[in-house]
Structures are given as C-alpha cells and as structure tokens.
Write a protein that binds this DNA or RNA. Structure first.
Length: 414
RNA sequence: CGGGGUGUGGCCUAAUGGUUAAGGCGCGUGGUUUGGGACCACGAGAUUGCCGGUUCGAAUCCGGCCACCCCGACCA
C-alpha cells in the first residue's frame, strides 16, 4: 500500500472526549472514529487489524472442527419470549417494524441458534456439532466506556456446541479453553484462565482475562498454577490447588466459555434420538471472544508515549518503508527507484507493506510511523546509495541495523 | 439509573457581562525547506450543543433539555 493513496487521518492532539488509552491512540492514529458513546466506525487501518484477529480465530477454531456460519441480527420477539429473556435481558435493544412486529437487535444468539440446531439435529449420529460466527452484537449499555472495551455495538465471535451428554460438553469446553489460549497468544496477549460465575443460565464459566491496569475486572491469580478466580466467586485468598497466596490483578475479559447444560434445549425442545431409540435433551456449550474488545485490550497492553506497538500477527502491516529524500534531485530519483524496487520485492513475498512515499518532512513520517505502530520499519535515505543498505528496526527498539534487502528477507521469513 | 465533570471552525485550546469570538493544528494557493510532527506570505472555514430567561449588551449569569467523559450500580 502506498501511503500517499491510503485513506486515513492522524491527529497530533488527543481527542478531548476520550480518557482511555486505547481510544486516544486508536483515534489519533486513524484506526477508528467515534460516532457516539460506545459506537465507533472502523477505518481501513482499523479494519485490517480486525481482519487479522478474526482470521486467527477462524484458523484455530477450524482446526478443532468448528464450522462458520452467519446468523441474523434481527431477532423476532417470540424467540426471546420463549426463554423469558425479552423482559429479563436488561441491555436488550428492542425495535419495531412498520407493521408492528417486534424484534431485538442481537446481543447474543442462543435464541436463534437453538431453533436452528433443532432442525439440524435428529439422531445421536448428528452430534457433536460446533458452529460459530463472527458478527456484530448490540447491547443497550447504560454506560458504555473505555474506548473499545465496553461498547453498545461490537464484534464478537460466538461459538455454540451441541453434544449428547454433559461429559462431552466438558471435554469440548476444555478443548476450546486450550484453543482460546492459543488464539490470545497469537494476538500477543497473555490471557489467564479464570473461574467465574455462570450468570443466570450456567453454573460456572471460564473467563479469559488479560492483566492490565485498564481492566474493569478484578481477579486473583495463582502464579504456580497459572489460573485465577474472579473476585465475584472468590472464597479464599489462597489457591485451592496449591494453597499459594493469590495475587490481585486488574484485567480485561476478552473471552469466556460456558457449559449451558440443557437449559436452552429445554426452552426450544432440542432433542436427539439416542442409540436406545429414546429422545434425549441435547447438551450445549457457548463460547465467546470479543473481537473489538480484544483490539482495545491489545492497545492497552502494547503502547508507549509515541503510540501503538502492534504485536506482529495482528498488525495492520508488517513493514513500514520510510523514504527520506535529500537536496540532490538526481540522487532523489535514484532513491525513489530503489525504494520502489524494495517495496515490490516485499510485495512479491506476500509481505504486507506500507510505503511512505509522501513528500513531507522526515520528522512527520517518523512521528506518524511510531503512532501507527507497524512492527518493523525500514528507512531508505541517502546512505542507501553508498552501500545498498537501509536502516531496519523494530518499533519497540531504539537502535537500528544497516542491512540489505536480501538480509531483510531472511530475517522476516523466519 | 445515582453522583461528579465538560460542551467554542474538522481537531486542540483562549477569551472581567462590553466593538467584528482569538490562537495553534489541519486545509487551499505561492515560495523556501527536507533524518524526528519545518518555515514565510496570503486565504477559506463559527448561528460558541439546543431552547428559553435576565440585561442597553451573553461564549460568559440563571432555568430546562441534549450530548460526551469519569466514579458507582448493572454486566448472558
């Protein structure tokens, strides 16, 4: 991508109507734009990060046999009345059609996927089934807050699994838990498996908590066992397994996994015929990852005074090429030619590159580059003409190396 | 929903109740620059969140409403 053609806009000053680090940086750097409280637009730069996160999730879930689908976000009232949640779900957005039909905007999708599962499941031979989607969710929060961490509209990955019995749900849930840790690790985050309450429809849940002072949850972490308990269910300040004293941490919940039991199967009559020819209730689990919240959490964890520092796998681009021209026109022409060659070589290797080809001051290029936070930066200046070497450095490092394009390709491919 | 705070060009800010609302960023034109958000000149851009009130006169004072931020409550 040529930066001169790339549509985005950065700001030198922080927005006055945001307090959280993630919102300030993402807005300043041109990833998102605020429309209203808890409502944001994702600009081309921001969408690239969303796509990266979503694809990591897809890869890992597909590996364990999950299949993707897309469920509607307009939920007829009757579906939500069946579970009693039309009245009970306090953050439900409700809307009415011209003819008076009532709908909710999807805050979660159990009410839609269980009726679907009923159609898909007849026999024990149809089970297990694991379906997921990555889609927008709506929640009428009384207080949206903290940039991308608590929104009224947000993107979520929600997975639902259907099984013959509780043991199979538990077994699958453990597999999802393990997969979640992989997903968060690939996103650059250390997520802690945390025991938590099950809310109104499950006995317990597992939360995936990313420790950061910006978090709104408080968890108690055991360094030895590498697990934690949410404050809401804490019974002792010592680990239940090893008795070690627990550490209190602030954290952001980026994912969760629930064993739903048969609660929704009962509400929607989801049965299967078992080997013994008897109809039995389907056991289910549900598993969420807040995609946009995850993006906010990554920024909260990875930033410095100059801007964002994206972990490699979720960065909008991998390499930022900065071309610095001098006074000599002939030299400049050569430099431009070489820079383009390097740019195309990297593109040929399927490396995502942002090439700052704009005719602006070097200082502005550097400042903006630091703000956007692309992991690797190469600077092509007059020195390149002498030894065919450019400067190469990681966003988080201060010092650069002088290397050739061949050396760069070796380094990057690893 | 309870408490606190804030609303001024696209963004960030300034302005004892007193001319025509000031500056910086950004934007346009011309020129000079080019290794850490450069400089000069000229220019465009505002019903000071909205409605009402007080006053000879309101961005400024008063009332109501709205929006945003923060704390709390809530958070399948």
């Amino acid at each position: 991508m040529l930066q001169s053609k790339f549509i985005y806009k950065t700001y030198k000053e922080e927005p006055s109507d945001e307090e959280s680090r993630n919102a300030k940086l993402l807005i300043r750097a041109g990833f998102i734009e605020k429309v209203s409280s808890g409502i944001y637009n994702f600009l081309p730069l921001g969408l690239r990060v969303i796509d990266k996160i979503e694809n990591i999730i897809r890869e890992e879930l597909n590996k364990i046999g999950c299949q993707e689908l897309l469920l509607t976000n307009l939920h007829p009232k009757e579906y939500w009345e069946k579970t009693g949640r039309w009245e009970k779900f306090d953050v439900l957005f409700k809307t009415k059609s011209q003819t008076g039909s009532e709908y909710s905007l999807a805050p979660t999708h159990e009410e839609i996927i269980f009726p679907l599962a009923k159609k898909l499941i007849n026999s024990y031979k149809d089970l297990p089934i694991a379906l997921y989607q990555i889609h927008t969710k709506y929640r009428d929060e009384l207080r949206a807050k903290s940039g991308l961490l608590r929104n009224r509209e947000f993107i979520m990955k929600d997975l639902y699994s259907f099984h013959r019995n509780n043991e199979e749900v538990e077994k699958f849930k453990k597999l999802v838990d393990k997969t979640y840790l992989k997903i968060f690790k690939r996103c650059g985050l250390r997520a802690i498996e945390t025991y938590a309450s099950g809310g109104t429809f499950s006995t317990y849940s597992t939360e995936f908590q990313v420790p950061t002072p910006a978090g709104e949850d408080i968890i108690y972490y055991c360094k030895r066992c590498k697990i934690a308990w949410n404050k809401e269910i804490l019974t002792s300040k010592n680990c239940k397994n090893c008795k070690k004293e627990l550490e209190e941490l602030k954290a952001i919940e980026v994912g969760n996994t629930f064993n739903l039991g048969t609660k929704f199967s009962e509400a929607f009559d989801v049965y299967y015929i078992d080997r013994d020819n008897k109809a039995k209730l389907v056991h289910a689990g549900c598993y969420g990852i807040g995609v946009t919240r995850l993006m906010g959490a990554i920024v909260e964890v990875y930033n410095d005074e100059k801007g964002i520092i994206w972990p490699e796998e979720v960065a909008p681009f991998k390499i930022h090429i900065i071309l610095i021209l001098g006074k000599d026109k002939k030299k400049n022409e050569k430099l431009e030619k070489y820079a383009k060659e390097i740019y195309f070589k990297l593109l040929n290797e399927n490396i995502e590159v942002l090439f700052d080809d704009r005719n602006i001051s070097a200082g502005e290029k550097f400042a903006e580059s630091d703000l956007i936070g692309i992991p690797y930066r190469i600077v092509i200046g007059e020195n390149y003409l002498k030894n065919k070497k450019f400067e190469f450095k990681h966003r988080k490092e201060k010092n650069y190396k002088q290397i050739t394009i061949e050396q760069l390709l070796k380094l990057i491919k690893k």
